[in-house]
Every structure is written in C-alpha cells, then in structure tokens.
Design a protein around this nucleic acid. Structure first.
Length: 828
RNA sequence: GCGGCUGUGGCGGAACUGGUAGACGCGCAAGGUUGAGGGCCUUGUGGGCUGUAUAAGCCCGUGGAGGUUCGACUCCUCUCAGCCGCACCA
C-alpha cells in the first residue's frame, strides 16, 4: 500500500467546493455567527500572469495555515482571493501578439484559480474579485471621484519621469537608480499634465500611525519612515537685493547659518532666468543648465561625482549677518527636495565643502568642540557639548540651543521660521496606458475638468485595435469613446485618456472582498467596520513601500471622507522571504524556476505546502531542494501508512486514552507534548517548521511504540489518539491528508474540530532528567522524581559516582539547584 | 555613507524568560526486508583524543576577541563577514 495523494486531494477539494466550506456570511446574513470573534486573514492578491510560481505557493501556504489555525481556535475567519489584473505585462503581451489583454488575463486567472483549488487553499470563493472587471473598477473610479471631491486628487503639469521604452510616466517609486523598474531603460524628465494624489498631506499621520500597528517587520516600518523622510529644521529667507527677489531655503542646521558662505540653486530652479538676465555670463549658465537637464538622473545622483557648477553674477543676503554671498547653480542641488535652493555651509557639510574647495570659496567654521580643540573640516558630526563660534550673539550656545534661538530670532522680522520637510512626493497616478482603470473625468472646453457623475460609472474601457504606445494613451485612438458630452453643460468634450496606476486598484481591494456584490456602493460601511482591519496580512517585502503605504493612505483618506472607521488597514504584517533555487533568485532566463504544478502533480499539494513551511522560518528565504520535498513526502507517507495500519489493527471500542501505562502512557504523553508544542509555536507567530517537526516526532514515536520495539506495545486507544492527533496538528499545512486520516480514525471533519488542547496531567512526567554539573560542566544525568525538593536533588547529585570523582579533593564553594532541571556544584 | 537583518555540523535549521548545543529534516554510513534495484523498517552520524569484547571517559566547539555570571548560541563592549533597503535629501 502506498500513499497516493492524487485521489485523496481531489476528493477533499470536491468536498470543500461542493459544501462551500470556507464561505463566511456577513453580519445579519443567514449563516453569520455573531458570537464568534472575527479574523481577517489576507494574502496579497496576485498579479495574474502565466500561472502561479513558488512565491505564490509559499504566500498562500503560510496564509492558509494561519487561517486554519484561527478557525479551529474559534474565530470566524474571512479568507478571500482576487486578482490585481490591470497592468503592464498584459499590455506588453498585447503589443507583441495583438491579443486583447482581457483575454490573456482571463486565461491566466483561470490558471490561478485552478492551481489554488488544486493546492487546497481554504478560500471563500464567493468573494472573489478582479480589478479589471467593470463591476470592480466602477468602484475604483467612484473612490477616485470621492478623493477628487476631497481635494486629494488633482491635475497639474509636472516634471515627470518618463520611460522612453514603455512610453509612460513612472512614479518615483518605480524608478530604481534612474531606470525604469520594469524594463531597466534610463528614465528621462518630461513636463506633462498629470494626476496626483495628495499623499503628502498625510505624511505626518502615516508616521504617527505606526503606533496603531501591532506587529509589522521592523525593516518595513523603517523603509517607510525613510521614504517619508521627515526632517525638522527651518526655512530662512535669502534676499537678492538687486532684483528684490526672496529665496527661501530649507535647512536642518539653522545653527550653522553664520557659516553660510555661498548660495546654490538647482539647475531646474524657475528663477534662474530672471537672475541671469543681463549678467555677463548668462549664456554660460544657460549652457550648464541645459547640460544638467540632459544628464541622466543616475549620473546626477552619484554622490561620488565631482561637484560642478557655475557662478551667477548676483549675490544674496545672508539673513543672520547681512553678508552678501555669491550665488551658484550646481546640479548637486535637487529641485525635488526642499525649495530647490540651499544655503551652503562648507565647514559643516561634506557636499558644500567639496564644492567650496573646487571653487576656492570661503570656509567658515561656526561650530567647535567645547574645549575649542581643532577639528578636521568639514565638521559634520554634532556633539551635544559643542558650541557655536563666529556666530555673533549666539557664540557659546550648543547647536541644539542655537537652532531654536536662531529660528526664533529670525522669525521676529520674517526672515525665517521653523519648518518641516519631507522626502515624500505626491503620488503620481496617471499612466499613458491602455490596460488600466480609466480616470473618470472629461475635459470640457467650457467647464474644464468635470467629474463623470456617479450614475454614469463605470467609464468602461473601450476596445482598441492598436496597443502600441505613442507617447499618449492608446485610448486616444478610441475616438468614439473619447468624444463625449460634458456632463455639466452638455457641450462636446473629451474624455480623460490616461488610466490609473494599478496601485490604485490594489489600495482598496481588501474592502471590496467584504461586500463584493454591492451594486450601490463599493462596500457597506457597517460591513467594512465589522471585518476591518485585516488581522494578518501576508506578502512579499517588495511591497514594503509602494503598495503598503498607498493602502494606508487610502484608508486614511476614506476614513476622513466618512466611508469607514479604520485608520490602518493591516494591523499585523508578515513578509515572507524569497525561495531561491541553487542559491539564486529564480528566473526564466536562468532556467532555475520551480513549477508548483509539477511538484503538486508528483508529490501532492500537501507535500509541497508542508515542505515550504518546514524549510525554515518563512520570513527568511530558503533554497528549494527536491530532496527536501521528498523528505516531507516520506513523512506524510509514514503518517498515511500509520493511519491505515491503526485503522485496521485497532478498534474505536478500545479503552479510552485516559488510562494507560508503559508504552501507551508514553505515546499519549508524546501526543500531548506535540499538541502543546504545536500550539505554543503557532501562537508565537510563524514557527511552522517546529510545529511540523513536533508532529514528525509524534509519528516517529508512534512507529517505535506500535510494534513494541523496545518493550511493550502501545494499546489501541493510545495509537488511535496519537494518529488522529498527528492528523489534526498537520491539517493546517496538509489539509487533505489531515482530513483523510482524521476521518479514517475518528470520523467526521477535522476542520470542524476545535484545535486540540494538551492535558496537563499527561504533559508532566513522573520523573525528569536531572542534569548535574560540576563547575558548569555536565557530569551526570540522573532520573529524579518530578516533585523532588532541593536537598533531595543535591543528595542525588552528590551520590553520583562521576560527580564524586570530579569533586574529589576539592572544597565545595557553592551549590545551585534549579528544581526540575539541574544541580550545579561549584568546587575548587 | 545611513538604516535594517543574518552568522550554529557536510546542508536547511532547533534550543521558550541565561540552565543537557545540534530537535526535526536532508545527506552520508551500516544492518534488515527484497531475486535484484527502488521502496520501506531499524540504527549510527559536530570535531579531536584516550579506551574497548561491549562499554565508557576527557578536551574543544554556536563568525572573531574580550567581559558579566555558578552557568552564555542567548546579556554587555569591541570587531569581522554576508544579505537587503535608501542614498548628493541640505
């Protein structure tokens, strides 16, 4: 007899599909269980492309284990699934093949559905959504309009990052080292009208509300903090008297204002032309600016690059001391950060120092150690003991004191004020692409931008012939669709042809799952408030910044609009590590991919899932080894055979598991130990590898004791209990086999059973192994009675022959006794 | 440069609040079952040394160096290596 997972898995999958086992009802609906606490277990929704890979298998195996564990611990678990179906890969495929992205996407979705069912993931399929379907994106558009009404969506001309290959605008987050995240092409700047979400309005709340989270990986929080990049400091006004032009700069070091010896503008700064007009080297400046604009962001972003710049024949006034300081344009100053202009303090800033050295400019030290000892310039690191020098009335103040005092002093006559600056930019959400959610506005020559009325939603994506990007959205070609009437005045108007960034779609999908068939609203507020927030979110770290921050922003914006209560969408976040093959990231080009389908067919879904959870802590990555899957498959086979043999050999009428001695007692104790161990490790978080190891130990012991290999044989009741317990504990990882063996031994459905509880009476043994140390080194292990007190344990320890040898001729200085554990005798 | 994480056998990894380092699995080895192979079952498996019919014993060992402690993979200081994120952010 041989364990053949195929028929077993198919059978249980049919049961779950026919009986709709994993569906849960909303409050007030038939089947709702208001007595139960809710738990929203959610894995990041997949982007359907081809068929699922091992990363998906890992994500859903981990999430499913959590979902099962919570269900059996009395929670009403909502565990839905959907597809993030808009996006570039499908569109690129369409460009190449001419196939409609909808067709390839639907095909892929079918493959994902088939695999998820085949994996036995406990999904509530009645809540399935896909972002590309009109009944979903209708609500994406609806939500966009609500944000628009709240003033959180706006359109403006902006210097954007343009990918020439994909012919589209990219968000900051999609530009990696100056290259398109997707295709690696160097990004170019362009000025275009673009749609933005005002995420910057929420910068402080996005920071503060980290406090509302229970458990997020530290590194994700840190990444978001850095991305938001809040810095406190001051704005100070440097005036160009010639032109009566004020330049505000942001600085985190107002204490060094007296050391500002020159002033630098970013090449993109809008006032450069005014400044240089009529100056002798205007053309030289223009040439520099043109060069800088042409240089790629990668080149400009390189901190090691030689500092270049050009002098503008103007000066500005340092507000703290009235000094006229020279003005430069240099590309090390970025237009995107602060005001695009800086005060340069070469003595206390490495970049300014380098620039000053290249251009022979004054370097004036204004902060020095308290003992006035010489320091090497630039002196950047601050010490709280430092004092200001050459700073007029502020000499002798510490930098911290000086910061506040100088800001206040400047503030008195409007030369400066405290300021907070962020690295975070507004979210550029428009894309000049076809396969996305249309932005529901029209452009009317009379009324300007007009929102499409709610009752006309969805603005459906029209079919087009040619997907090739041409620098504008391919939707421009759908003339019948583009030309429309203004909803406000009825005059001829044109539809917006940009589509939304797919991150908009995925910023609220977890709300649609809650009320997926609502035709009046994206979701009912009461239902959303019932299920939200997500109690456990699971996904890859690659979404640490983008998706997770956008969804947090959406939540806050919707909450401000009164659409729901929750501030933070994901209370607990778990980020899984990546599975590699031969130590390398899997990729089709390397040919080292692992096809879940192949392994599921060969070893069964249970083996593949259990292996993934057994590889190691799931937050870490791991290298996929065929031998590892085989090992887990061997273990599941052993469990299956154990079940078969026990079912045949024993009888339900065998005496109950309460009694027993010898081998029976030992096996029962092991089973209860495994229950206890598995439960504690589950509750600790994601310690799946040790949960599975505990079940393996139980199965090993059952094998050892069933035939009385080392003494007497375990009785039928003990064997039955051990076997069904193993099935019950392995169920969250291997749901099919767990169900099969449970049914075989106990009858009924294991998932309807509460999670087992360990019997404390069987957990505590009558004896324990006393470890005896002499001077901290283990010298003996003695069986001792569980309740033995300190003197008794000491006596036992001293009576040991080896211990005696090690104590021989020595004076005992100290004796440490940890009851139930060990004795340590210190002797000299 | 800044921030975060990780270093334990041949490999993946265990070790809860300091108390038997190496659970469990892979690999490897031996024995059993089998016509053979596979499969399955059992046993062994950190390194070194002593010892032996079988035993057993001693020393070393969690990246490295110190420290705290009766006792350290675990706590502290310094240090090395690797991975990830951000990076001219004023």
């Amino acid at each position: 007899m041989r364990y053949d997972p195929g028929p077993i898995e198919a059978r249980w999958q049919d049961v779950w599909a026919e009986e709709r086992t994993w569906e849960v009802a909303n409050p007030g609906e038939p089947g709702a269980e208001p007595g139960k606490p809710k738990s929203y277990v959610l894995e990041m929704l997949p982007y359907p492309s081809g068929e699922p890979h091992v990363g998906h298998l890992k994500c859903y195996a981990v999430g499913d284990a959590i979902a099962h564990f919570r269900r059996r611990n009395g929670y009403e678990v909502i565990h839905p699934m959907g597809y993030d179906a808009f996006g570039l890969p499908a569109e690129n495929h369409a460009i190449k093949t001419g196939e409609h992205p909808r067709d390839s996407t639907e095909r892929s979705i079918a493959a994902f559905q088939e695999q998820f069912r085949r994996w036995g993931v406990s999904i509530d399929w009645s809540r399935e959504v896909s972002s590309h379907r009109p009944d979903y994106y209708r609500w994406t558009q609806w939500l966009f309009l609500r944000l628009y009404e709240q003033g959180l969506a706006y359109r403006t001309e902006a210097a954007v990052q343009w990918c020439p290959k994909d012919a589209t605008v990219l968000a900051n987050e999609q530009v990696i080292e100056g290259r398109c995240e997707r295709c690696g092409t160097l990004v170019e700047p362009r000025r275009l009208d673009q749609w933005f979400f005002k995420i910057t309005d929420y910068a402080d709340r996005l920071l503060a509300d980290f406090d509302l989270l229970e458990s997020w990986p530290e590194n994700v929080v840190t990444m978001q903090r850095n991305w938001i990049g809040r810095s406190e400091g001051a704005e100070a006004v440097f005036r160009c008297d010639d032109l009566e032009l004020d330049f505000t700069v942001f600085t985190t070091r107002p204490d060094t204002l007296f050391g500002a010896t020159f002033f630098v503008l970013a090449p993109e700064h809008p006032d450069i032309e005014r400044l240089i007009e009529g100056t002798p080297n205007a053309d030289e400046v223009r040439a520099y600016v043109a060069d800088a604009m042409r240089a790629s962001d990668t080149d400009r972003g390189d901190a090691d690059r030689e500092k270049t710049g050009v002098r503008i024949e103007r000066s500005v006034t340092n507000p703290v001391n009235g000094e006229q300081i020279p003005v430069f344009v240099a590309d090390y100053v970025l237009m995107e950060y602060g005001t695009g202009a800086i005060m340069a303090v070469p003595a206390h800033d490495e970049r300014d120092f380098e620039f000053a050295r290249n251009f022979g400019l004054d370097i004036r030290q204004v902060v020095a150690p308290a003992d006035a000892s010489a320091v090497e310039l630039p002196y950047v690191e601050q010490d709280s003991e430092d004092v200001l020098v050459s700073s007029g009335e502020f000499d002798g103040r510490t930098p911290a004191e000086a910061k506040d005092e100088i800001i206040e002093w400047l503030g008195r006559d409007d030369r400066g004020e405290p300021a907070v600056n962020y690295r975070l930019r507004d979210w550029l959400l428009s894309r000049q692409r076809y396969w996305g959610c249309p932005i529901p506005v029209v452009h009317c020559p009379e009324c300007g931008i007009v929102a499409v009325p709610d009752e006309q939603l969805p603005v459906e994506l029209p079919d087009i012939e040619d997907y090739q990007p041409k620098g504008q959205s391919p939707l421009e070609a759908a003339t019948d669709w583009v030309e429309t009437d203004c909803p406000a005045c009825g005059a001829g108007a044109r539809r917006e042809t940009d589509t939304m960034d797919t991150f908009v779609d995925s910023s609220w999908y977890f709300l649609r799952y809650l009320d997926p068939h609502n035709t009046e609203l994206p979701f009912d507020r009461e239902i959303a408030d019932h299920w939200m927030a997500v109690d456990q979110y699971i996904g890859g770290v690659e979404h640490a910044i983008l998706h997770l921050m956008y969804a947090r922003f959406f939540m806050k914006a919707l909450s401000d609009g009164g659409y729901l209560d929750v501030q933070e969408p994901f209370i607990n976040l778990f980020t899984q590590g990546m599975i590699t093959r031969d130590g390398a990231k899997m990729s089709k080009s390397k040919g080292n991919t692992v096809s879940p389908r192949e392994y599921v067919e060969r070893f069964g879904a249970d083996s593949a899932r259990t292996y993934i959870c057994f590889m190691g802590p799931p937050e870490r990555g791991g290298d996929w080894l065929d031998a590892g899957v085989e090992g887990v498959h061997r273990f599941l086979s052993r469990l299956w055979r154990l079940g078969m043999e026990v079912a045949e050999r024993t009888d339900p009428a065998d005496a109950g598991p309460d009694g027993g001695e010898g081998a029976s007692r030992e096996l029962l104790a092991k089973a209860h130990w495994a229950i206890d161990k598995a439960t504690r490790d589950f509750e600790r978080g994601f310690q799946f590898n040790t949960v599975i190891a505990a079940v393996m130990e139980l199965v090993n012991d059952a094998y050892r004791l069933k035939d009385g290999l080392y003494g007497d044989e375990a009785g039928g009741a003990a064997l039955r209990f051990a076997t069904s317990t193993a099935a019950s504990l392995i169920f969250p990882f291997a749901p099919h086999l767990g169900s099969e063996i449970w049914e075989l031994i106990e009858g009924g459905r294991v998932w309807e059973q509460p999670w087992p509880e360990a019997d404390p009476g069987l957990l505590s043994a009558e004896t324990f192994t006393l470890v005896v140390q002499v001077n901290g080194k283990v010298r003996a292990k003695i069986e001792a009675e569980a309740g033995a007190d300190e003197p008794a344990l000491l006596e036992l320890a001293r009576a040991d022959e080896r211990v005696g040898e090690h104590l021989d001729g020595k004076d005992v200085i100290k004796e440490i006794v940890v009851p139930g554990k060990l004795v340590n005798i210190v002797a000299r």
